[in-house]
Amino acid sequence: MNVGLEHYLTVSFLLFALGLLGVIMRRNLLVIYMSLELMLNAANLALVSFSRFNNKLDGQVLVFFIITVAAAEVAVGLALIVALYRKRQSAHVEDLTSMKL
């Protein structure tokens, strides 16, 4: 059986699910961030495979942008985590419930 679009998509979905599981399950903000990166990468994989099998380069351009944005997002997000840790001495989501009134 030839490897086709659906194989790549399956891998993408599973990777995405793994990332999602990490986001919901893990309590450490840093790990949650890594899981987010996993999800983004899953999306990238799906886009690249679509691009390949549709003979269109636009998908890859989009992936390029996603990587850029993800890099910026990681930088800002990590800076936020550091700032938060300075204030609360914790990088744990359970300790960050100040959104609840």
Partner: peptide, 14 residues
């Protein structure tokens, strides 16, 4: 529902 817990929100969102 408003637990203040980020992950509960994420769960509901999903």
């Amino acid at each position: 529902v408003q637990t203040g817990n980020l992950q509960t929100y994420a769960f509901l969102f999903v």
